[in-house]
Amino acid sequence: MSTFWLAPQFCLLGLMRGLIQDGLEEFMTDQLPDSWENFVPAMNGFVIDGIGSFLGIVCIYGNRSLFANPLNRSGLDKYYQRLTIFSFVNLCYYWFISTLYTRSSNTHAGKVCNESQSTIANVV
C-alpha cells in the first residue's frame, strides 16, 4: 500500500475547502447585517480553520489506536469508515436544518412580499 492512495482524498479536500470558503462567505454576507461585513473573513477563518482543525485533532486523538507505524498494519479503513458515518450524520443534519431554514425563510419572504404589495396598494 502506498501513500499515493490518499492523493484523491486530498484533491477532494482542497476542492471542498475552496467551495466552503466561498459559500460560507456568501452566506454570511447575505445573512449578517451590513455593519458586520468587516468581520466576515475572520468568522469564516474561525469556523473553517479553527473549529475544523480542532475537530480533526479530536478525531485523530480519539482514534489513535488505529494509527500504526507501518501503514499496512494501521486500521485506516476503520478510521475512514467512522469518518464516513460521521459525514453521513452531518449530511442528514444539514438536510434537516436546510429544510427548516428554507421553510421559515420562504414564509418570511412571503410576508414581506404581501406587506409590500399591500403598502403599494394603499399608496396607489
Rank of each mutant, 00 (worst) to 15 (best):
S2I: 08
T3D: 13
F4C: 09
L6Q: 06
L6C: 10
L6D: 11
A7I: 15
A7N: 09
P8M: 05
P8C: 10
P8N: 03
Q9A: 15
Q9M: 15
Q9S: 10
F10N: 11
C11H: 09
C11K: 11
C11G: 10
L12K: 11
L15C: 15
L15T: 07
M16L: 14
R17Y: 01
G18W: 09
L19C: 06
L19G: 06
L19Q: 11
L19Y: 06
L19S: 08
L19V: 03
I20A: 06
I20E: 07
D22S: 07
D22Q: 02
D22M: 06
D22C: 03
D22T: 01
G23M: 08
L24K: 08
E25W: 04
E25K: 06
E25N: 12
E26R: 13
E26H: 04
M28S: 05
M28C: 01
M28T: 07
M28H: 07
M28K: 08
T29W: 02
T29V: 13
T29L: 10
T29Y: 05
D30V: 11
Q31I: 05
Q31Y: 13
L32G: 08
D34K: 12
D34F: 10
D34Q: 13
W36V: 00
E37V: 11
E37P: 04
F39D: 05
F39G: 07
F39P: 04
V40Y: 02
A42E: 05
F46S: 08
I48T: 04
I48K: 01
D49H: 12
D49I: 03
G50S: 14
G50I: 06
G50H: 12
G52K: 02
G52V: 00
G52Q: 00
S53D: 03
F54Q: 04
F54P: 07
G56K: 05
I57G: 11
I57F: 06
V58K: 11
C59V: 11
I60S: 11
I60M: 14
I60N: 10
Y61S: 10
Y61C: 03
G62E: 01
N63L: 00
N63E: 05
S65G: 13
L66H: 07
L66N: 01
L66R: 10
L66C: 05
F67W: 14
A68F: 09
N69V: 07
N69H: 06
P70Q: 01
L71T: 04
L71W: 07
S74W: 04
S74G: 13
L76C: 10
D77S: 04
D77L: 05
K78E: 08
Y80Q: 07
Y80V: 08
R82I: 09
R82A: 06
R82Y: 04
L83C: 14
L83Q: 12
L83K: 09
T84Y: 13
T84F: 14
T84Q: 10
I85G: 00
F86P: 04
F86W: 13
S87M: 09
S87K: 01
F88V: 03
V89F: 12
V89D: 07
V89E: 12
L91E: 11
C92E: 00
Y94P: 01
Y94F: 14
W95Y: 02
I97S: 00
I97Q: 00
S98F: 05
S98K: 00
T99C: 04
T99H: 03
L100C: 11
L100Y: 01
L100V: 00
Y101P: 02
T102H: 08
T102P: 06
R103W: 05
R103E: 01
S104D: 15
S105E: 03
S105C: 02
N106A: 07
N106G: 06
T107I: 03
